[in-house]
Design a protein around this nucleic acid. Structure first.
Lengths: 145, 145
DNA sequence: GATGAATTGTTGGTATGCAAACGGATTTTG
DNA sequence: CAAAATCCGTTTGCATACCAACAATTCATC
C-alpha cells in the first residue's frame, strides 16, 4: 500500500512549510541584516539609488518599474529621498507629465559609501548556504518571480 | 591570469542579483497569487487563522511569535479579525496581562473553506520549479531565515 | 486634425512591519 | 519579602506596499 494512495490520507496543512510564510521570514532576516549594516537608508531607498547609478536619470514611473514599485509606492520613496537632498527632480520639457528623477551630488556620494556594505548584506544573508548552493538558490528564487 | 585575481577587477553591483531585491519580487508575485485565490483575507491574517487551527487558542503575543509578527503588528491583525467576527478574545484569569485569542465559529468555517485554496497558492507559486527543485528550494529558503 | 485610449503623476484608503516608549502584571533574585 | 528584571499589551511614528479613482497630458487611429 502506497501511503500516497491511501484515500483521504491528506497531509495536514503546515504553515511553516508554505512558501509565502518562509519567504516572509527570510525577508525579515534580510531586513534585519540590512538595517544593521546600512542604517542610513531603507532597502527600497537603496534600490532607487543603485538603479539610478546603473541607468542614469529616469522618469518617476519608469524608475518605479525597474525597481519593482508601483506608482504610489515610488512616489513616497522619491519624496523622502528628495527631502533628504539625495535626489533631484525636474519636469520634462518634451513630456510635461513626466518628472525626471536623478541623483544629487550627495546621493551619489552616499551611494559610493554604501555599496561595499550592500555587498556584505547579500553575503551575510546567504551565509548559511554553501557557495554552490547560493548560486543554485538565487537562480531558483529568480525563476519564481 | 585568473580573472578573480585581477587587481581591482571588481564585479559591478547589480541590483537584480541581490537576494534582498529578488526576495522582494518573489514576495510580490506570491502576494499577487494569494489575493487572486484568496481575496477574503490577507496572507498574515490567514497565517493567524491557520496557526490557531494548528495549536488552539493562544495569548496574543504568543500568537505573534509563532506567526513571526511583533507585538505591534499582531495587535493590528487580531483587531481586524475580531472586528470581522473571525476571532474571539478573552482576558486570562490566571495572568491578567494576557489576552487569549481563539477562533470563532465563523473563523473556523472560513478557514476550512480557504485551506484547499491555500495549498494551491503554494503550488502555483512554486510552479516554475520542477518537483525535486521545489523541495531543495524550500529547504534552502528555510535555512536563510 | 479630432477623438478615444493610454500614460504620468497624485491622492486617499487599508494593511503590514519595525522601533521606541509606556503602564500594569508577573517572575526572578537577592 | 522586597527590589529588579521580565513580560504583556498598547500607542505613536515612520516606511513600505497595493488598490482605486482622478486630472493632465500624450498617443493612436481613423
Amino acid at each position: 500500500m502506497d501511503k500516497d494512495n491511501d484515500q483521504d490520507a491528506q497531509e495536514p496543512y503546515r504553515l511553516d512549510r508554505q512558501v509565502g510564510f518562509i519567504l516572509r521570514r527570510a525577508s525579515q532576516r534580510h531586513l534585519s541584516i540590512f538595517s544593521e549594516l546600512i542604517p542610513e537608508v531603507t532597502p527600497t531607498q537603496f534600490a532607487v539609488l543603485a538603479k539610478l547609478v546603473e541607468t542614469g536619470a529616469l522618469s518617476q514611473n519608469a524608475l518605479g518599474r525597474i525597481t519593482a514599485m508601483d506608482a504610489a509606492t515610488i512616489k513616497g520613496v522619491v519624496d523622502r529621498l528628495v527631502k533628504r537632498g539625495l535626489l533631484t527632480t525636474v519636469r520634462d520639457d518634451k513630456d510635461k507629465r513626466r518628472m525626471i528623477v536623478g541623483l544629487s551630488k550627495e546621493g551619489r556620494a552616499l551611494y559610493r559609501e554604501l555599496e561595499p556594505r550592500a555587498r556584505l548584506i547579500t553575503e551575510q544573508t546567504l551565509a548559511p548556504l554553501e557557495q554552490h548552493e547560493q548560486e543554485a538558490f538565487l537562480a531558483m528564487l529568480a525563476r519564481i518571480c
